[in-house]
Write a protein that binds this DNA or RNA. Structure first.
Lengths: 212, 212, 212, 212
DNA sequence: AATGAATGAGGGTTCATTCAT
DNA sequence: TATGAATGAACCCTCATTCAT
């Protein structure tokens, strides 16, 4: 009977995920979710306190898992600036494994407490560490506007890698290439900003290649 | 007076815009929109045929204006590959002037015929010309996956430029810097892909700077 | 200007007739009626006090005309029992000339004070005189149930003659034939009821033919 | 309990029937129907998918029952021309038992898919077989206009028998008498049309009586 | 005589949630 | 655990009518 209960809960989670992905949280009908799960609306409330709790139950495990992973990644990122590709690959692998939940979080959460989570993530979680990494990497404070923009671009890069339907090999190759892209770009930027444009091209160019 | 009618329409558009931005199209209540405009729900239908028409009236003028501008920009882009910065600036300036409407279109249109417009824009409008520009620029076919990703990054760059609250001077500076970023990145990418990584660093590095 | 006014009124009457015939009184929309007449809803109220008055204005002239005619017909019917065909033809001719209005009255008046008019007409207007004619014709009281039924049948006969799309010649022929039908039927009925079934067939049969 | 559910459905059917009969389908208010049934409007949708389904639930069982019966009746009618009275009695008995539903169908169905059902019934269902019966009975093609009219008269005869509030004995007697009426009338009509008016009165008159 | 914006009530329907069973 | 009937508020929308202009 424990099994039945768990099973029912799983059915509801699955059906809820489908509806939320398809319709968004607000438009998704609890009736439809229950019907597709082969249950009545009444039964739903045995397992969840309401529509929002169902959404939370879908998203929360992924979120805490992501939090654990992210803390490890950022620690390593700060201790060793050359671990970029592996860390990114690790993040993406996690995200691909939780594709649907990420989509729920980013695209289907209007009306839940996770509405605006993407902005929160970027501004309050990613940005501070990103700024720190950039500052260290550049050896001096980098324009926050540039960091913000490049962070958002990186975020979008991830999104396409996650949802583009690529194999993990393709993802790995693309990450490698995009790291070349980003780091070469960043270096060129630093040179320009420093007014060092005409200086030490060789060294910089070599560095780019070495890092990739 | 004549003004009353126009005025009411404006009040509804304003109130609608606020509600749609705040709640999204589906969740936004026509009652609330009307109440905030100081009207009964019945009065609404003197001015609009329904909720969706109100949304369209908010978004359509911006869209056709954008279409006109985009056709000009892309024509120039194809005829002269070095006009990037000005064209981008022009696009962004337009978008900043229609901030709210763009946000309606991209973030608040679920349930309207504009749902999925962002994907349509990227995939069907921007991507083909973007691929063409990249192919010409590289002098050979570029991996579509890379183009897609870089396009999405560019798109996100725009988003931050539009919504980051920057002055136009800041935007101009940032675009210039980000063009350096992108083009340097792209060149580095081409070199890598060509297997030319170890060769002629100087020439390439110079080229990057010349073009920007 | 008097002409303009009359004209507008006529436009509204025409448009109203069409809508009432098509949708019935209740479902017919005053907005649509006005729009089809090329007017605003406000203008309507210059000419009519409301939706129901428009309906009345369509039906009332025909009704009083019919009342005048009917009183003449019934007077003659009572004074000369053999004038049936001419009287029927006269009634039908009138009805055909006011087809639409009759249809409004009988089929489209739900929600107006004319709802139930057909029942009123049959029960309170036609039935009493019909019973009287039958009683006189039979020379003794005829079963009211039979009179009611035959009256309703006759009424339906009229409906088909009016709305069947026949020419006036066809109508005339059909009335003549149906009079044979009705009178032969009625005579047979009287004989049966009288228990005179086996008697004086010849006389009765002759009488039938003579009367037609 | 189980009864509660069925009970509620019955309450809604009853209340719906009353409102539909009183106001017609379109004007009848679902809110009123529910209120009279002692329910909220929301509860209604547990039992019916909408207003029209409630109407259908009232009318459909009667319709299919009538269809079954009618097919039997018409089969017998075609195989044995003298079974008229019993068949009519059977039809009327059925109709009397479903008085309200017939009225819903014929007088209260505007706005439903049953709108125009009476015309359909007369034109497409009854008329063809009626014409056939008449043609066989006469031994030659009978003027369709006459058949149409007499059919409509017969239909109206039924209406009065159903709604006149007669006992079944009265109905039986009236049908018998009206069969005499109709058949005598029809025979007279045939004689006239044949131009045999002056000939063989005796034979015809006898035939009439024999058949009735 | 005509406009058309505005009213306010009501339309059918859907919703997340509750609760007796 | 699960049912599903019931709630009551809210949804978008349409209506006949009014009235300042």
């Amino acid at each position: 009977m424990m099994l039945t209960s768990d099973n029912t809960r799983q059915l509801l989670l699955q059906s809820g995920k489908e509806q939320f992905l398809e319709q968004g949280f607000e438009k998704a009908s609890l009736r439809t979710i229950c019907k597709n799960a082969g249950l009545t609306t009444g039964a739903f409330y045995t397992h969840f306190s309401g529509k929002e709790e169902l959404f939370e139950a879908l998203v929360e495990p992924m979120l805490s898992g992501f939090g654990v992973m992210y803390r490890e990644v950022i620690a390593q990122e700060l201790s060793d600036l050359t671990t970029g590709v592996e860390n990114e690959l690790r993040s993406i692998t996690y995200a691909v494994a939780h594709k649907d939940e990420f989509r729920l979080l980013f695209n289907c959460s209007r009306g839940t407490k996770y509405e605006g989570f993407k902005e929160h993530l970027i501004r309050d979680i990613f940005y501070p560490s990103y700024q720190e990494v950039f500052d260290r990497y550049a050896g001096k404070p980098v324009d926050p506007a540039l960091v913000r923009i490049i962070l958002r671009m990186k975020f979008e890069e991830y999104m396409e890698l996650i949802y583009g339907g690529y194999t993990m090999e393709e993802v790995k190759r693309l990450i490698t290439q995009l790291t070349i892209f980003s780091e070469a770009g960043f270096h060129a930027l630093l040179r320009t900003i420093d007014g060092e444009t005409m200086r030490s091209e060789k060294a910089n160019a070599k560095e780019v290649n070495r890092e990739v």
